[in-house]
């Protein structure tokens, strides 16, 4: 079965970006994912997500989970690339927050 490719863009109300240029956490093991956050000029004021996942049919859940994270944290000005191997929404949220912390936090 082919991989599912998803692309989303969200604009938070209180835009903040990570301190460092980039940040990477996680290993694509079973029920886990890797998150790569890179600052990008093309994403001014918004967070652009690119998700590659093995799971089919959970597009709406991905959208909801990622949108909520962007709204609560204000993450913007970044490209977020995710490689996923069937992680649950809780793990996805954890890893993205971990990646933000690894990039020096938001400011």
């Amino acid at each position: 079965m082919a991989l599912t490719e998803l692309n989303f863009e969200f604009k938070p109300g209180n835009p903040k970006s990570i301190v460092d240029d980039w940040s990477h956490v996680g290993v694509v093991s079973s029920s886990d994912l890797e998150v790569l956050i890179e600052k990008g000029k093309a994403c001014k004021g918004k967070a652009c997500f690119h998700v590659l996942t093995t799971v089919v049919g959970f597009d709406n859940i991905w959208e909801t989970v990622l949108q909520r994270i962007v709204e609560t944290t204000g993450l913007s000005g970044v490209n977020v690339s995710i490689n996923d191997n069937a992680a649950t929404p809780a793990v996805v949220k954890r890893r993205i927050l971990q990646a933000i912390e690894n990039g020096g936090g938001l400011q």
Binding site: M1, A2, L3, W22, H24, V27, V28, E34, L36, E38, L52, T53, T54, S81, N83, D84, N85, A86
Partner: peptide, 19 residues
């Protein structure tokens, strides 16, 4: 990871890839 050199074979087989 920033170079994003993933395995082309795993993508064809629908397996998860890593950067």
């Amino acid at each position: 990871p920033r170079d994003k050199m993933v395995s082309p074979h795993l993508i064809i087989l629908g397996e998860a890839v890593e950067y």
